[in-house]
Write a protein that binds this DNA or RNA. Structure first.
Lengths: 119, 119
DNA sequence: ATTAGTGTTATACATCACCAGTACACCATA
DNA sequence: TATGGTGTACTGGTGATGTATAACACTAAT
């Protein structure tokens, strides 16, 4: 599988999001290693640095831990940690903005939430 | 009032959004002229080009009409037109993404409606 | 005709983001 | 010691982006 990169967004960010999603959804479990920089680079035809940049973000967020010479490993508790962080971020930043937009457009938050969740 | 520009986003986009909001909220009425490029430039200490770029977007969207030598005027029906467009855009693009995020984070409608409305 | 007001074009410049190539430091294994 | 596996620091190119400067075309009023 060679993903179609969205030209609008930087590849390293898309890679980052991809890993985040996979951890959140449990495809990569805690204690497991991330696929190596060079492996991903070869598979996706990218420069190792690009992957490294994405992986660097995960280290900065302490979601992943480096073991020298061995690779990057998902830290224990990473899944819950990330879920909490994403929720916090969503509730305090994105959602208020969206809500304001909804009000500005004279749409009903209740309708949007209830009607859409069923489908 | 000298607005604090968000360094993250280009000024011309913030100007554009500002005008859009003012038209939507009825502060600038249909048939009225936009403040001139040079006037805004002087007031905000910006280059005329920066304002022109924002105004250009409004012309491209046919929200505003140029009268040579006189200025830019809000077109009749602009307010309703923009409301419709923004709604359409919101419902077909932003909202689906937000909804997906909500599901992914396992957030409940009740939580979203109650928590944020108070602040 | 002159002056002052509109927006715009054309040009150029500084900055930055993204990404590639190379070389390095480290570890594990034999 | 040699080899092959990790991630990364450094450098630099390329392209896009945001803004600045100056000159242009038009209208309106004097």
């Amino acid at each position: 599988m060679t993903p179609q990169w969205d030209p609008e967004k930087p590849i390293y960010l898309q890679l980052y999001q991809q890993v985040v999603t996979r951890i959140l959804d449990g495809y990569i479990k805690e204690g497991e290693a991330l696929p190596s920089v060079r492996k991903v680079a070869a598979e996706y035809q990218l420069n190792p640095m690009t992957i490294s940049k994405a992986y660097q973000m995960l280290q900065d967020e302490e979601v992943v831990e480096k073991q020298r010479g061995k690779g990057l490993f998902v830290m224990p508790g990473a899944q819950v940690l990330m879920l909490d962080r994403e929720r916090e971020s969503f509730l305090s930043h994105q959602w208020p903005a969206v809500l304001q937009q909804i009000v500005r457009l004279k749409l009903s938050p209740e309708e949007l939430l209830t009607s859409s969740m069923e489908g």
